[in-house]
């Protein structure tokens, strides 16, 4: 027997209940569908789409909260590509995303599978891995600043046990961004583990049992039953990880403010400072538009990779 879960096709059901006329059913489904979808469409239209349109319009102006403003066409955009802070932020953000996304996804899936076993103290472990998500960022930042403290820090103390020379971590331009990535991975595990855990409940036990009967190895079960069943959720985690890493802000803001120099400056930090410290809302809007395009490109690549992955 095949242990590959049929992925349900999007939208149209293939078979139709015999008792009903095909057209009636379709109409009733379409009507129900739109009714169910309307509140979300209305809500997102008002509270997200309209603001985004406002951002698009603002990006063509030099609005800076003053009495007067004027249209500048694509002036903001052409300035952006000569803005060293923006280019540095873009580069750091892309680097951050490329490193953090695969590592954090792999670790959280592994931990989720571990936590899906029948083990003692499961509740404790699940809660423990979720705690960084609920711990206030200010507390997280403070302790990581201690861990990375060049003088009395825990990281150097630990490494010195192995005779490794002390590092300057966040204070060293060369290691600041990688140090920040570690915290980002650490903090983001909780939510991903939860989503994977929830998804692992949906993996058909019948299929796993029949694979057992077939004498499949653990790895075979994972590859042939669990992995395909996780497909839709993998996609969700990938997309949200891309968005989340591109929009990393709080952590950088409280830990380094983008320093030393601009070594850990990331896009949302740059946008935020342009908008609310420098009060250049028009310029920050143009920057946001570029950022959204870049994320969209990444998502496009992510979808291609995923399609290649689920096809084999």
């Amino acid at each position: 027997m095949s242990t590959t879960l049929e992925r349900p096709a999007l939208g149209t059901p293939r078979k139709v209940a015999p008792a009903k006329d095909r057209g009636t059913l379709l109409r009733s489904q379409v009507r129900t569908g739109w009714t169910l979808l309307t509140p979300a469409l209305l809500h997102s239209g008002i509270f997200i789409v309209i603001p985004v349109i406002a951002v698009l319009v603002l990006s063509l102006t030099d609005y800076s909260f003053g009495d007067t403003w004027s249209w500048v066409g694509f002036g903001n955009y052409s300035t952006l590509f000569r803005d060293v802070d923006f280019l540095a932020s873009l580069w750091h953000t892309v680097l951050y995303a490329i490193v953090v996304i695969p590592i954090s996804m792999a670790i959280s899936l592994a931990v989720a599978i571990g936590l899906n076993q029948k083990i003692k103290g499961i509740g404790f472990f699940r809660t423990a891995f979720y705690i960084p998500t609920v711990t206030a960022t200010v507390a997280i930042a403070t302790i990581w600043l201690w861990i990375y403290n060049p003088g009395s820090g825990l990281a150097n103390g630990f490494l010195s046990l192995f005779g490794v020379a002390p590092n300057r971590w966040l204070a060293d331009p060369a290691t600041a961004l990688p140090s920040l990535m570690v915290v980002g991975i650490w903090q983001g595990l909780g939510t991903k583990i939860i989503i994977y855990l929830a998804a692992l409940q949906g993996v058909s036990r019948d299929l796993l049992e029949s694979a057992d009967l077939d004498g499949a190895s653990r790895w075979q079960k994972f590859a042939n039953v669990t992995w395909p069943a996780l497909g839709p959720v993998q996609f969700f985690v990938l997309i949200t990880s891309i968005v989340g890493t591109f929009q990393v802000f709080d952590l950088v803001y409280v830990m380094t403010r983008g320093g030393p120099g601009s070594e850990t400056r990331v896009l949302v930090l740059d946008i935020y400072q342009n908008a609310f410290q420098d009060l250049k809302l028009g310029y920050a809007s143009a920057e946001t538009v570029i950022m959204m395009i870049v994320i969209a490109l990444f998502i496009g690549v992510g979808r291609l990779l995923q399609r290649a992955d689920t096809n084999d």
Binding site: P173, G259, G261, S262, Q273, Q277, D278, L279, K280
Partner: peptide, 21 residues
């Protein structure tokens, strides 16, 4: 008049000078 903007510029660029970048 653009001091609010300059504050951030000072913080970034002075650090880059101090760290030898």
């Amino acid at each position: 008049a653009n001091w609010l903007e300059m504050r951030g510029n000072f913080d970034i660029q002075l650090t880059q000078a101090v760290l030898g970048q």
